[in-house]
Design a protein around this nucleic acid. Structure first.
Length: 280
DNA sequence: CCGCTGGCCTGCGAGC
DNA sequence: TGCTCGCAGGCCAGCG
């Protein structure tokens, strides 16, 4: 699932849990094998009887607030939350954490097939804000209205000048929430070739790119995110954003605008898809 | 400080 | 059909 829009959709999906009182937070045995889940079960004793006061999204992180302590939660490449009815539902095979609540018929399950996710206790919000990836995080691509001034200031920094825009756009220190799909899609919408060096982008193009990022991310949220795998989850939060993708994953297919072939290149070890005719 | 490469994992599907 | 290989929405340590 998870780029910024998918994390935002997950946050919205979990809204019903705000105000609920925790009965128990249970780590699974599997979770203990991975450093980003390394908190011992006893670290979660504190949460019993605590209310979920908020569930916030910061970039691609979910931040679970509990009147003091925080759980910092990253979905990695494959993390998903699902709400299951208490009782007879079968857990997904790579579940890492379960949350049970008082007087609530559902419990929340964090499942993460590839184990790149994160679920960690922080002693305070301040500590979370000091955590490097968050401290250094750039503007929120889903901020409304899009913070154009800050975007232009950040992309203007000298360290970006000689790099390819397709490689730069996934940098969370620039725009948080953009990932590999929406990188390609934003560039397609802005009609900018991903191999362009940042320094060659005109101010007009930079502005168009900023707007394209905002439009692309919000359209994805409105579509409930992009869903790729055939992996089905019981409650089904299937997204449909993939239905309007112009370029992502479409190498070898024909551009709907100009009928030339969409190509795939590799930037920083990640795939980038684009139409060399439409994106100059 | 910087950017790039490879590594972390499991699962899937294209191609042989 | 069955196997291998490449690739997958993220990030970060280590290296030059």
């Amino acid at each position: 699932m998870p780029e910024g829009p998918e994390v935002e959709c997950t946050r919205q999906y979990l809204q019903s849990l705000i105000g609920k009182t925790v009965k128990k937070i249970q780590l699974t045995e599997l979770s203990q094998k991975y450093p980003k889940y390394q908190n011992r079960q006893s670290d979660f004793d504190w949460f019993k009887g605590q209310r979920v006061t908020d569930i916030e999204r910061i970039g691609k992180f979910l931040v679970w607030h509990f009147n003091g302590k925080i759980i910092l939660n990253h979905l990695g490449m494959s993390g998903k939350w699902i709400l299951l009815k208490k009782g007879n539902q079968k857990l997904p095979s790579h579940s890492k954490a379960l949350m049970y609540f008082e007087k609530y018929p559902q419990y929340a399950v964090f499942d993460d097939i590839r184990n790149f996710g994160q679920f960690k206790v922080f002693e305070s919000y301040e500590k979370v804000m000091q955590h490097d990836p968050i401290r250094k995080m750039g503007i929120d691509g889903l901020a409304k209205p899009f913070p154009m001034k800050e975007f232009l200031a950040k992309i203007n920094k000298p360290n970006y000048a000689n790099r390819e825009i397709g490689a730069v756009l996934v940098d969370q220190k620039l725009v948080a929430g953009v990932g590999n799909i929406y990188k390609s899609e934003s560039l397609a919408l802005a009609k900018i070739n991903p191999t362009r060096l940042v320094k060659t982008l005109t101010k007009k193009e930079r502005k168009e790119l900023g707007l394209a990022i905002s439009k692309t991310l919000w359209k994805a949220v409105d579509c409930n995110g992009s869903t790729f795998s055939t992996f089905q989850i019981p409650t089904g939060q299937e997204g449909s954003a993939q239905n309007w993708h112009k370029v992502y994953g479409k190498h070898g297919e024909i551009c709907q605008n100009c009928k030339t072939e969409i190509i795939r290149i590799v930037q920083n070890g990640r795939s980038t898809f684009f139409c060399a005719e439409c994106q100059k």
